[in-house]
């Protein structure tokens, strides 16, 4: 059986989808990246390996997300695609007559306009955290509500509180202010969801026609309070669909793209990747004041990939030499009188 793997390594979560030729999802997982995309990739691969059907063979791999290039090198991708295209492809597959996609993830949010099954326009917010998953999560912790309960709590509110959502800092102080006035938690959570929806529309939709059906996806789509807030915003007049796969749409899109573009022979490195020893390290090139941070991905001692060189002078060979030089010049632990233990907080 021909199978395709889609991997979406985002800032907060890492998603995997295993798909067959009919674009059916056979297995998927949703993990925390926890600042270590390599570990998350290995964990996801292990999960998928255990769910491989009998006789299944991976014929293509697609990666997406902010760590798409890193994931592409480690897993062995046939196609490395940006998140916007990947999300749009999955939404079109799920809801063929989709006209608008709302995607809210951990660190960014996107609005994609689709006409006749083709992306016509898109907007992406990467600078402002207001209206992203990270902010909601932060506020959930502050209010001492588990993030899974956050949305349900909003639905319990009988009325809402207007919260300034233009900026996360002001939203937070406004929320505290409303709390001190005596508003209940549920009302505040509902008000927050509404503020985030206003912010999303103001930031991304400016001047764009929002037509339904709208597909709402990304991690935040799991939040029922947010879904309700979007419905209320449009006065219940627009059809908003939250697909059951909303959390893994990017990975699914990557898998679909891998199927469309897969070459005869896939670049997939096999599940044995989890046994291999990958390490990323970086150094600052001091040859010009640009001070590029060169990131090197190494498998054991071999440089597999290299990023960050603006002028393009660094090659895997020269970077290896440079890393070795840096290692030699590293002061030994004994040269720091304060460091006696093996793991010192300051010097690793």
């Amino acid at each position: 059986m021909d199978l395709f793997l889609g991997v979406d390594v985002g800032s907060v979560t890492t998603k995997f989808v295993l798909m067959d030729r009919e674009k059916r999802i056979l297995a998927s997982c949703y993990l925390r990246t926890s600042g270590d995309p390599i570990a998350a990739l290995k964990e996801g691969l292990r999960y998928i390996e255990h769910r491989m059907p009998q006789g299944g063979v991976i014929r293509g791999v697609g990666t997406t997300g902010s760590a798409r290039h890193l994931a592409g090198v480690i897993v062995g991708a046939d196609i490395v695609k940006n998140e916007i295209t990947a999300h749009a492809v999955a939404a079109i597959t799920r809801v063929p007559d989709v006209r608008t996609v709302f995607e809210i993830g951990g660190q960014d949010s996107k609005l994609i306009i689709i006409r006749n099954g083709v992306v016509e326009d898109f907007a992406m917010n990467t600078v402002c955290a207001a209206g992203t998953g990270s902010f909601l999560e932060h506020q959930a912790v502050r209010l001492n509500v588990p993030i899974e309960e956050f949305g349900k709590l909003a639905l319990q509110a009988r009325q809402s509180v207007r919260i300034a959502g233009r900026c996360t800092v002001f939203a937070e102080s406004d929320m505290i202010h409303k709390q001190q006035l005596g508003f209940g938690k549920a009302e505040i959570v509902k008000g927050l969801c509404e503020a985030l929806v206003r912010n999303f529309i103001n930031n991304l939709a400016s001047g764009r026609e929002i037509e339904d059906p709208i597909v709402f996806q990304g991690g935040v789509a799991a939040n029922q309070g947010m879904v309700q807030a979007f419905r209320d915003f449009f006065g219940g007049k627009k059809r908003i669909i939250v697909p059951p796969e909303h959390g893994v749409m990017g990975a699914w899109g990557a898998a679909i793209l891998a199927m469309e573009y897969a070459p005869q022979k896939t670049a997939f490195q096999g599940f044995s990747v989890v046994e291999r020893n990958f390490k990323s390290r970086s150094f600052i090139c001091t040859d010009c004041p640009n001070a590029c941070e060169i990131v090197v991905l190494k498998e054991d001692d071999r440089v597999k990939a290299l990023w960050g060189s603006r002028c393009g002078k660094w090659t895997p060979e020269t970077a290896t030499v440079r890393c070795e030089e840096e290692d030699e010049n590293l002061p030994s632990l004994s040269s720091y009188p304060g460091c006696s233990t093996e793991r010192c907080a300051m010097h690793g």
Binding site: N82, I84, T85, M124
Partner: peptide
């Protein structure tokens, strides 16, 4: 304050849009 990653993603997605069109 412009981030290179966000810019690259937008440009790549724009090229995809043009290609599909």
């Amino acid at each position: 304050h412009s981030g290179e990653a966000g810019l690259v993603t937008r440009v790549e997605a724009f090229v995809d849009v043009l290609e599909r069109r």
